[in-house]
Design a protein around this nucleic acid. Structure first.
Lengths: 235, 235
DNA sequence: CGTCTTATTGATTCAGATCAACGACGGTGG
DNA sequence: CCACCGTCGTTGATCTGAATCAATAAGACG
């Protein structure tokens, strides 16, 4: 079957342990399987949905990366998350009339799409699925609180060091290289996310490099001294 | 019945329109009713639960006020929310081994306690209850994102003005006085929440007063020029 | 190969933190 | 009921981290 490469079943998917199926029986995964859509890959810059769109689905990144952001009434943009392979997003739309977030691909990206009305129906039959969704939501709330602490209480170096270690840790969980990787987002995106100017991000990268913590070449990052970076996180 | 005053049923409760029962049938509210516990009032400073405690329940404020906060590995405290009458909290513990948040009463406070294992069982029978909990969680995520934008992108005056208008709006929804009210949290708590020093909060209060936006007497706040305050939010 | 975007680096400014001192409540016990 | 003490809030002076403004450099892409 030609579509085989794209239509990887959940049961075959290397990410399934990290995704929704984690708490489900084989049988329940098969029910989930039936409602999942795997659309054609998105290109860098493509929107998955925009603020104001009807809420239709949850999404899981299979490959590539996605950012989500809100725009407040005054036009201020705030990036609320970067999503890497195996990560579920789109939860802010649940039971809301419309999306208030926009989601955009940061590079060529493949997704699993979980249409929400069918997912919701499935939740009635499979309580553990509802429970798993709630767990993912409560994880998201906790992560948001950690980010708030970072942005509200830590200095610029600590913010960037924490960000980099978080990316590395998430790559590692997906068994992707975590010492040497490509950032898919711009300096300006990182700054927006961390509440810093893009110039500050640049300067911090330079400083980390001078301090022998990492090697930077544009978007390519090589972690050299993780303990050192970890120490910077607490400053 | 002597306990009548404390044991106000959900169906009688003025807050029920704002609380979980909003999406439930009378019958389902009665099921919910059966699992709700209404303990004796808490005094200022009492802990509802602390980080590390087992996750046992969700909570609704009936009167008084509660703050929740996290403490990161380095000991940094971050207040993650203030909860007023009718507001549900405790969601970060769902499907987690333990609380990572601490909840503390800011003044004499009455609560409704929803034991989670029973609530979870009820969710299997009443899909709209699960849906309503998910909605509250996704609300919380959205609010956290709004707070992140506030802390990461706005100046001190805008942060405090937004905070005050948000309190007023929430009081109004509960039909409580929203022009003239008592803040139950300290300057230091407000500063912690908004990512500012307590001295800065003090100075902003003074400035707002000089500008004729409000009158402050210690914890007593009287809003004078809401449009003016609103304008400060966008600066 | 030229153009456009993204990143880097430097100079200067500024908002808010920090340090320090004082004042005003409010709770407690005599 | 009043006086004391401790906490909380206010105000002032100074410092500093990061923003902003400005210019250049380095890729990316057509």
């Amino acid at each position: 079957m030609i579509k085989a490469k794209i239509e990887t079943a959940c049961t075959e998917c290397a990410l399934s342990r990290l995704c929704l199926p984690v708490a489900l029986s084989t049988e329940d995964v098969e029910s989930l399987e039936e409602i999942i859509d795997r659309p054609k890959p998105l290109s860098r810059g493509d929107y998955l949905y925009q603020a104001g769109d009807a809420f239709e689905a949850l999404y899981v990144v299979r490959s590539g990366a996605v950012k989500t952001f809100t725009v407040d009434p005054g036009g201020t943009e705030q990036i609320t998350g970067f999503y890497l392979p195996g990560e579920l997003f789109g939860l802010t739309g649940i039971n809301k009339p419309a999306q208030n977030t926009t989601a955009q691909a940061l590079e060529r990206t493949n997704l699993c799409v979980l249409p929400y009305d069918e997912l919701d129906r499935l939740c009635s039959d499979v309580p553990s699925l509802a429970r798993q969704i709630m767990k993912v939501m409560s994880d998201e709330i906790r992560e948001d609180h950690a980010l708030l602490t970072l942005v509200s209480k830590k200095r610029a170096e600590a913010r960037l060091a924490t960000f980099l270690l978080s990316i590395a840790q998430r790559l590692k969980r997906r068994q992707l290289p975590d010492e040497s990787f490509q950032l898919s987002m711009s300096r300006s995106d990182i700054g927006n996310y961390l509440g810093l100017a893009e110039e500050t991000i640049s300067r911090m990268f330079t400083r980390f490099q001078e301090d022998g913590l990492l090697a930077v070449q544009r978007k390519q990052i090589d972690l050299i001294d993780r303990d050192g970076l970890q120490a910077v996180c607490d400053s």
